[in-house]
Computed example of a mutant assay.
Amino acid sequence: MATAYEAVYIVDATLAEDQVKTTVDKYAAVITKANGSVEDTDIWDPRKLAYEIKGYREGRYIIVNFLGDGACKNELDRIFRISDDVIRHLIVKQDPKADRFPSKTRAAEQERRERDAAARAAAVSLAPQPVTDLGTPSSDEKEAGTEDEATEE
C-alpha cells in the first residue's frame, strides 16, 4: 500500500523559470522511477530565508505531494542529499486528513485576495468625493437663488 508523503525543498531563488521547471521534473522523475506517483506540485515565489543556508539568503520553496513506499521516500531523500541544486529539504509522512493539493488551495486563496482587493478598489471609487470649494455657489445655485428672490417680491 502506498503512503502519502510531502517533500519540501528549497532551490536557488535566482534560477530562471525554465531551470526551476527542469529541477522539479528531475525530482518528479526520481519519484516515478522508484514506483511512486506525484499528486501535486506547488512552486512558491522567491522568499527571504530566516537565516543564511549554504551561502544563500533567498530561496524558492517547492512542495511536492506524492504517493510511494518507504523505498521511494528513501531514494528521494538520498538524491536530495547528494544534489548541489537543493539548498535544504524535508520529507514527511502526511496525515490522512491533510490537504493533499496545496497548489489548488493556494490558487483559490490568491483568487479570493484579488477579488477582495478589487471590491475594496471599487468601493473607494464609488465613495462620495469631498467638496473642495464651499465658498462659491455653483451656477445652478445662483440661478435658483435669483428665482426665489423674484417670487418673494
Rank of each mutant, 00 (worst) to 15 (best):
E152A: 14
P102Q: 01
A98W: 01
A2M: 00
Q129R: 09
A144L: 06
T132C: 08
P128G: 03
E111L: 15
I79H: 12
E152F: 09
V30N: 02
E17G: 11
E114K: 07
A2L: 01
C72I: 02
W44Y: 03
A16W: 00
S125W: 11
K73F: 01
K104M: 09
T3H: 12
F101D: 07
Y9E: 12
I63W: 11
V11Y: 07
L126W: 10
I62P: 00
T3A: 10
N35P: 09
L67F: 01
L67P: 01
A13V: 02
A118G: 05
D42E: 15
D148M: 12
D25W: 05
Y51M: 01
R112P: 05
F101P: 07
S139V: 13
R57N: 05
T151A: 15
D12E: 12
A50Y: 12
A121P: 09
E141L: 14
L15H: 04
I79T: 14
D116F: 10
R81F: 12
A117F: 11
K48A: 14
P130V: 09
D148H: 11
Y61K: 08
R106L: 05
Y9N: 03
S139T: 11
V38W: 06
E141N: 10
D12Y: 10
N35E: 14
G68M: 06
A117E: 14
T136D: 09
T14A: 13
G55D: 00
D45A: 15
R106H: 10
T23M: 02
A50V: 07
A127D: 06
I91F: 06
L15T: 01
P46N: 09
E111R: 15
V24W: 05
R120D: 15
I43R: 00
D18P: 10
Y51Q: 00
L15K: 03
Y51D: 03
L134P: 11
F80Y: 12
T22P: 08
T105S: 15
S83C: 09
E58L: 11
